[in-house]
Write a protein that binds this DNA or RNA. Sequence first.
DNA 1: AAGATCACCAACCGCACCTCC
DNA 2: GGGAGGTGCGGTTGGTGATCT
Length: 340
Amino acid sequence: MGRAPCCEDTSGLKKGPWTPEEDEKLTSYIQNHGHGSWRPLPKAAGLNRCGKSCRLRWTNYLRPNIKRGRFTEEEEDLIIKLHSVLGNKWSRIAAHLPGRTDNEIKNYWNTHLRKKLLQMGIDPITHKPRTELNFLANLTQLLSNPITTNLAANLMNPNGNNIINNALGLQPNIAELARLQVLQNIYQILNSSNPLPNIDQPAAPLSYLNGLGSLNPSYHDIGSSSHQGLYSQVPNYVGFSQDMSASWPSMEELEVNNCNNKSLSTTSSYDNDHALDENRLPPLVSSSREANSSINHIESTTTSSNGGSTLTPSDDHFLEGWENLLDNRNGGSFWKDFIK
DNA sequence: AAGATCACCAACCGCACCTCC
DNA sequence: GGGAGGTGCGGTTGGTGATCT
């Protein structure tokens, strides 16, 4: 398989940084003639470079509308979100960031964002929390953050117009549910670090969550399809754990409801104890490759490590749904604040 | 002040896959 | 079906400026 290098004989061809003169030659040639086939282009443009080098220089640096300079916080957040869904599909990630190239995003990921996630205690590959004790300690710091605390208070409040109530019959917004997953899993992590001897007891006190009181039962039901699994679940960052992922909405359902901004559930006889079972989202990243075949399917089609694309048209359709879900227009500033 | 080390990033390389003829 | 050209990607290199000792 494979093919011969684009430049069989690179001896005598210049390598390394481009000079302004070379840039000018390449730019003016492409503006006048288009690039067409890259292989004969350098000769025609009067450049002592290989075609591949010209193509890279053009696509990564010289072509119009390239955005230079530091990434904004919004761009950072978007890259992280997209990477959690798409993996190292830099070109697809770049498609969501106008003016940014896949190479630039890849470099920025490797030099900045990867470290940032590691410092947050998140595995940059799986986007799941690292389970080291020091990360669990860091979570208490996270929960001292007013932003997180406010969100958590909203999550915990059984009254008022909060996320849970929306989810319990007020046509939950799909993006809110995705956010809910994140907060929920933080609490699971805390719970898992403080296991209770009797799982039928009221939830973990989480006494370190100043002012939040104890978990109420509705939270249990959101967090698991059964109480049995609550404390045995392996926490994951943005996905439900294994026993919570038994029944996802269909891809079509997800797409339709996301696009139309409608509730996932259309059931009339609504059982609050299981309301969210029916509205459950697939994890943005699976907590277990073995446990859920649908998630395996997602991952296998989005994080192929050999560089080749195995995406089918339906896969693309599905991914677009997730990409839309994660889009800033739906996510608002939640992720930005949360990651901070 | 100067050398060593680190961080960043543009650019390169090789491979696999895709598209077109 | 097969080859050529183009594209996407992971991994890596090397130059340069910043920071440390």
